[in-house]
Design a protein around this nucleic acid. Structure first.
Length: 730
DNA sequence: TCGTATACTTAGAAGAGTACGA
DNA sequence: TCGTACTCTTCTAAGTATACGA
């Protein structure tokens, strides 16, 4: 942890002192090809003009090196231009959107897609902008286009809310084009076989049969629940007097073959055809991809309503296989500014429909919602991960976790005291919070197992999920979120061990260990720290673990001059976090074969190295040693060429040896990384739990390219973190 | 106080896109 | 050039947190 006198370290309570950015060194970044070009989208961008640097305690270093640069060195140069355009365009943009006040809810039809495209995003470039800065070329989609349009982290008083999200007003102006609906079903007329005979299906039933046929290669069709739920759905689409009476006599393979052939045909189209279709799709989607939030263009996350299909609940979900119905405009509620035009329904959508409702709720960030036909759950349309809403929320989440760092000592003392209390509820609270903190468990809300999969978290753990072992060890074995199994044995505090034993005493296997619920637990946490809830512990512990693991770089003997070693080390640290949070993934299908192949390549590299070493030995001693290239070749395998050329000089051979050895160590590292990570999902903790500033600081400190650890999605999600200094400490 | 509604965040899988090596 | 492997994006299920109303 940095000392109080360390001017670079930001206080958790003061995320950005004086509204300024910490001016860390520029992160080493592989150059993007488009950096020199100025896409049209950039002309529309509205980055806040860079303020004069005000630092709590500016040092000379801050001014002299290129620490001021965030992630892209080309961006600051363009800022003044963009800022100037911003002032000019603000009004123009609104005019170009052609507000249609008469177009209220429940009206249609809509304009042609072409006109909608014109009215959107990049294509809406203001004429003034074109006059002042002619772009070199028009690019529809570049990384630069999706750099944040809303540089919210450059705003003044960002720390004013002190880590608490402002739950009042979220926006002053909100405008968007609504959502895209699933096109109407077009029947193909392929018959299934019923009891061996071809059988035609009504279009509605045929559509449902398609959903089933698409699953024929998977495991789901073998699941009883999936099968019976599907059968109910399928039967409901057949007329009462239809001869199909049993799923067991249905053979859906003809439809499967038809769908596969269609897929194959699509795959085999010419490059030009594929590009043309892609272009058309992009043009169609364009108006729906962005929203205007306070006149800043923001990307929308999910602008397409979920298409009909079979419900794919995870694990043993009782509703798996049920039919998810088609969503129509009447089911959709939009959220727009009062003075924003109500969008028209796409003219190729279902005819004669209208929006369900239009709200003007500026305390929320949702753009639209509709209800899921399976559970009645609300499906929201939100802005994308790189938007200001999500970015700010993320930033505050990590600030809250950093704030917990200041409280954690007192909190741990308090729940330790509670664990020893004579009061049953106190002992339960203390023990539950201990498990949440120590084992990074989720809080575990109560579930209706008739309607949902039987998964649990801390508060909903049952006696059957725990076994007690000697040495104060417990084994927890349960299905957590997404029916992912948590199965770990951990040595816990003696008092927690005894408490858990006593909570289980006299209970049946299917009874809850704790009598407290998440609301009670969170109420207790709020007594210890404002706005603290159980989930903050996962963010806190994930970030702390990453920081601690990275800090061990010295003791692990990592050669920091080797990028591969650095990456491998970072991934090892990341994996520790993923294991802590129990982030698993299914082992990729071809993993075993892929490892076998990699092993073969390693064997070949070893043989090549041996060959060169023998040759060098021969040059030194004059004694020849014959090393067979491959002792036993498989049938059809080609003879490998020798790596030592006739008359090869000693220097050349030594150079070759070095190259081969370096290739081998790189290959070994890659193999190890691949095998170690085969069942661990590293991305979940990167996206949701580990403070990105820790990673950015690590990359800066060791001059590792950020692209190696943060893909494009993460770089656009965490623009605010790219400024972190190399000595940032969580 | 409790159940329900609302508003989000977190999660793994699937599919699309791209890079790379034979 | 083609097939394979890897990466990235999209999709949507499944959690948590809290406001709200009876």
């Amino acid at each position: 942890m940095a000392s109080a006198g360390d001017v670079h370290m930001q206080d958790a309570d003061q995320p950005m002192a004086n509204g300024t950015l910490p001016n860390g060194p520029a992160i080493k970044r592989e150059r993007d090809e488009d950096d020199d070009d100025m896409p049209l989208g950039q002309a529309l961008r509205q980055p806040a003009p860079k303020k004069a640097k005000v630092s709590a305690s500016p040092s000379k270093d801050d001014d002299d090196d290129d620490d001021d640069m965030p992630i892209s060195s080309s961006r600051p140069k363009e800022k003044p231009k963009a800022a100037a355009k911003r002032t000019d365009n603000k009004g123009d943009k609104r005019k170009d959107l052609k507000p249609d006040k008469a177009n209220g809810a429940r009206r249609s039809p809509s304009p042609s897609p072409a006109s909608s495209v014109k009215a959107n995003g990049a294509a809406r470039a203001a004429p003034k902008a074109r006059a002042t800065a002619k772009p070199k070329r028009v690019i529809v989609k570049t990384e630069a286009d999706f750099e944040p349009l809303n540089c919210w982290w450059e705003k003044e008083n960002l720390g004013a809310s002190k880590g608490v999200k402002d739950t009042t007003k979220q926006w002053d102006y909100l405008e968007h084009h609504g959502v895209i609906f699933t096109p109407q079903y077009e029947p193909h007329g392929v018959k299934i076989r019923y009891d061996g005979e071809p059988m035609a299906l009504p279009p509605d039933a045929e559509e449902v049969a398609n959903f089933w046929a698409q699953q024929l290669d998977g495991d789901r069709v073998g699941k009883e629940k999936f099968r019976t739920n599907f059968w109910k759905a399928f039967k409901s689409k057949l007329p009462k007097d239809h001869p199909i009476k049993s799923i067991d006599k249905c053979d859906f393979r003809p439809i499967k073959q038809h769908l596969d052939a269609d897929k194959e045909r699509k795959k085999n189209r010419s490059k030009e055809e594929k590009e043309e279709e892609k272009k058309q799709k992009a043009a169609y989607d364009a108006p729906y991809q962005f929203a205007l939030v306070d006149h800043i263009r923001e990307k929308i996350g999910n602008f397409r309503v979920e298409p009909p299909g079979l419900f794919m609940g995870r694990g043993e979900h009782p509703k798996q296989g049920q039919l998810k119905g088609r969503i129509f405009p009447e089911q959709v509620t939009l959220n727009l500014a009062k003075d924003a035009p109500v969008p028209r329904i796409p003219n190729d959508g279902p005819p004669g429909h209208a929006w369900g409702d239009v709200h003007h709720n500026n305390t929320s960030t949702w753009l639209a919602w509709y209800k899921d036909t399976i559970n009645g759950a609300v499906k929201y349309v939100f802005l994308g991960a790189a938007s200001g809403f999500k970015g700010m929320s993320d930033f505050l989440k990590y600030e809250k976790a950093r704030k917990l760092k200041d409280y954690i000592g007192a909190i741990r003392d308090d729940y330790a005291r509670k664990m020893k209390s004579k009061d049953q509820e106190d002992r339960e609270l203390g023990t539950a919070v201990y498990l949440i903190d120590f084992l990074a468990l989720r809080v575990g809300g109560e579930k209706d197992t008739e309607e949902e999969a039987d998964t649990v978290g801390c508060c909903s753990l049952r006696k059957e999920h725990i076994t007690f072992e000697d040495g104060y060890k417990i084994t927890l074995d349960f299905l957590g979120k997404d029916s992912i199994r948590y199965h770990q044995t951990s040595k816990i505090e003696e008092i927690a061990y005894h408490n858990l034993k006593s909570f289980c005493k006299g209970k049946k296997d299917d009874e809850d260990i704790f009598d407290i619920d998440p609301a009670r637990l969170n109420k207790y946490l709020k007594e210890l720290m404002p706005d603290l809830s159980a989930k903050v512990f996962r963010t806190y512990n994930a970030s702390v673990t990453l920081q601690q693991q990275l800090d061990k770089i010295g003791e692990k003997g990592v050669d920091v001059s080797k990028p591969d070693e650095l990456l491998s080390f970072y991934n090892d640290c990341n994996r520790e976090v993923a294991i802590l949070c129990n982030h698993q993934r299914s082992v990729p299908k071809g993993h075993a074969a892929s490892m076998e192949k990699a092993q073969k390549k390693l064997d070949e590299l070893n043989e090549d190295i041996q060959e060169v070493e023998d040759y060098l030995e021969y040059l030194r001693t004059g004694k020849k040693k014959k090393t067979p290239k491959v002792e036993k070749k498989e049938e059809g395998e080609k003879e490998r060429k020798p790596v030592v050329k006739d008359g090869m000089k000693e220097d050349a051979a030594k150079k070759k040896l070095d190259t081969l050895k370096s290739q081998r160590s790189k290959h070994e590292l890659t193999m190890k990384m691949k095998d170690d990570n085969k069942a661990v999902a590293l991305s979940t903790s990167k996206i949701n739990y580990m403070d990105p500033r820790i990673t950015v600081a690590f990359c800066k400190k060791y001059e590792m390219t950020i692209e190696k650890v943060f893909n494009k999605g993460l770089r656009t999600k965490f623009p605010w973190a790219m400024y972190s200094k190399s000595d940032f400490v969580f």
